[in-house]
Each structure stands twice: as C-alpha cells, then as structure tokens.
C-alpha cells in the first residue's frame, strides 16, 4: 500500500471581493497516493482552477487541512511555501510558460537556480532531462524557434527539474493539435509508468481525462470520485 502523498481534508475556498463572497470549493476531501496518475475533470467555472492553485501551493484554502508529502502546508510561511513549490511540485501549463529570452537549457535549469543547485550540476541535470524528453539536440534553441509540442516537452523537462513529488499539469494539451497532444499524454503516461511519477492532470476534456488511471470530477466546487 503506497503512502498518501497528498491529503486534503474539508477544504473550503471563499473569495471575497467588494463585499460579495463567492465559495469556489465546498468541503473537498482528496487523497492521492504515490505513483498515481489522476485527472481532475470539470467544465470551466467548476472550481478546478481554484483546486489546482491550492494543490500547487499557489493559494491557501479558506479553511481545512492540506498535507503534501507529509508537510502541513498551511503551517508554512510564504517563503517556505515558495520553497515547497520549488522542491515538491512540477508545473506544466497550458501555454507552456517558457521564458522567451532563455534557451531551452536555461528554462529547464530555472527551478534548479531557485533551489541553489551548483551550476555544473544544473547543466548535467538539465541535459539528462532534455535527453529524456527527446530534445537533447535543441538545448541551445529558444522557445520561439520550436514547435508547440517541443515547447511543451521542454516545459515537462522543467517540471521534473528538482525531482518533484507531484507533476501538476493544467490542460497540458489545450494549446496543441490532437496528434501532438497525444504525444504529450503518452510522455506523461510513460513518466508515470516507468519512473513512478505521481501526476495530477487538470482538464475539461473527457477523452484526455480517460487516459489517466483515475479520474475525479469537479462540479460547482464539489469533488466526486469516479
């Protein structure tokens, strides 16, 4: 029995703006074990972005508890939360979010810089990761010289930079054509199956969601396990 990597208990999120409150999440209980590939499926406005921000330690819940890899996230300061994001979470975004003026190599090394990894180790690790995503020949290329699929592969390499506990992918195929999207999904499956990486994928696409081993649905701020 694998240990729980992510544990959420009665998580609520309420946004208040101009005296008007809006509850985006209702009593979310959520457990993800090490080695799982989970997709979170929901239409827009369902609260899936809010949930992603909370899982990704970019935002704090209004109430409830959240443990990530044994760490009580809400006991941490903003600074320690930044460190937690850096070490334990690898983000993959819909629009890749690569720095245009940095080479593929430099983009992959960015989380390592914030982890204070020495530069010779950074170079070595980034080369290994770019080789893993099949772009070792593009390490000096800049994002705008690469195709969308190649950019997303670099983003995946970056997500793996500090060997995180969880890869958190937000609509990773949303900006790609079907064939390229397929390659990205395959790559994530491979990461999960061969390397045992825990992956959480957020999507609104039923077909993409089915690729994961487990799917949870989110609707009007409530979570339903399939």
């Amino acid at each position: 029995m694998a240990r729980p990597l992510l544990l959420m208990k009665s998580v609520n999120k309420i946004y208040t703006s101009g005296g008007i409150s809006f509850q985006a999440l209702f009593d979310v209980d959520f457990i993800i074990k090490e080695g799982e590939f989970v997709s979170i499926l929901g239409p827009s406005g369902s609260g899936k972005s809010t949930l992603m921000n909370i899982i990704g330690c970019l935002d704090r819940a209004t109430s409830g508890a959240y443990y990530l890899d044994g760490e009580d996230v809400y006991s941490l300061s903003t600074k320690r939360m930044a460190q937690l994001r850096n070490r334990k979470i690898g983000f993959v975004f819909q629009n890749f979010n690569l720095l245009k003026r940095q080479s593929a190599m430099e983009n992959v090394m960015l989380p390592m810089v914030y982890a204070h990894m020495p530069s010779d180790k950074r170079v070595q690790a980034a080369e290994t990761l770019l080789d893993k995503v099949g772009l070792i020949d593009k390490l000096k290329s800049f994002p705008l010289q690469l195709s969308g699929g190649q950019q997303q592969r670099i983003a995946i390499a970056r997500a793996l930079a500090n060997d995180p506990s969880i890869v958190l992918a937000d609509e990773p195929t949303g900006a790609l054509d079907q064939r390229t999207g397929r390659q990205i999904i395959d790559m994530m499956k491979q990461l999960n199956e061969e390397d045992g990486k825990t992956i959480i994928m957020i999507t609104h696409d039923e077909g993409i969601a089915r690729e994961a081993k487990r799917t949870v649905r989110i609707l009007d701020g409530r979570l339903y396990d399939d």
């Binding site: 930044a82 994001r85 850096n86 720095l99 914030y114």
Partner: peptide, 9 residues
C-alpha cells in the same frame, strides 16, 4: 512563472 517555480519574492 518565476514565483510559481519557487522564486522567493
């Protein structure tokens, strides 16, 4: 992006 990737403010 930098903040998300763990850059301290």
């Amino acid at each position: 992006l930098r903040l998300a990737l763990g850059a301290r403010p």
